[in-house]
């Protein structure tokens, strides 16, 4: 089940508002396609991102790929647990496997993202 408490990008990130922050991760579809994730570089706190900027690097056994900021904002926190336990991205992509928290996000960009049903439709 794709959680309906958050929004989705076409490049397979999710973003969830939590108070003044927005939490970003990758979808279950994305982690499944990547396979076992072996390395995550979740970027640097205080870095300013525009929508679509690379905000993290993920490697699986076979390949490397990027996570893009679904909205513009500033990195307020990173999930440092991923450095030693990147498998959290496979095991719990919508929870413990979150990647970064953003502040100062653009609400209009957020509203324009896909809802769960629309995301499911593009990955079906």
């Amino acid at each position: 089940m794709t959680p309906d408490d958050r929004k989705y990008s076409k490049s397979h990130e999710w973003i969830k508002l939590e108070g003044e922050f927005a939490v970003v991760g990758i979808t279950d579809h994305a982690q499944s396609a990547l396979g076992d994730i072996t390395f995550v570089d979740p970027g640097a706190v205080d870095k300013t991102l525009s929508q679509g900027d690379e905000c993290a690097v993920i490697e699986s056994v076979k390949a490397a790929s990027e996570v893009y900021a679904p909205v513009g904002g500033v990195i307020a926190d990173i999930n440092s647990k991923l450095v030693d336990a990147p498998e959290l991205l496979n095991n719990d992509p919508y929870g413990e496997g979150w990647i970064v928290k953003l502040r100062a996000v653009d609400p209009a960009q957020f509203d324009a993202l896909l809802d769960a049903a629309a995301y499911d439709a593009i990955t079906a």
Partner: peptide, 9 residues
């Protein structure tokens, strides 16, 4: 076949 359950397992 590249993988079934997962490469690491």
């Amino acid at each position: 076949p590249i993988q079934y359950a997962g490469i690491i397992s």
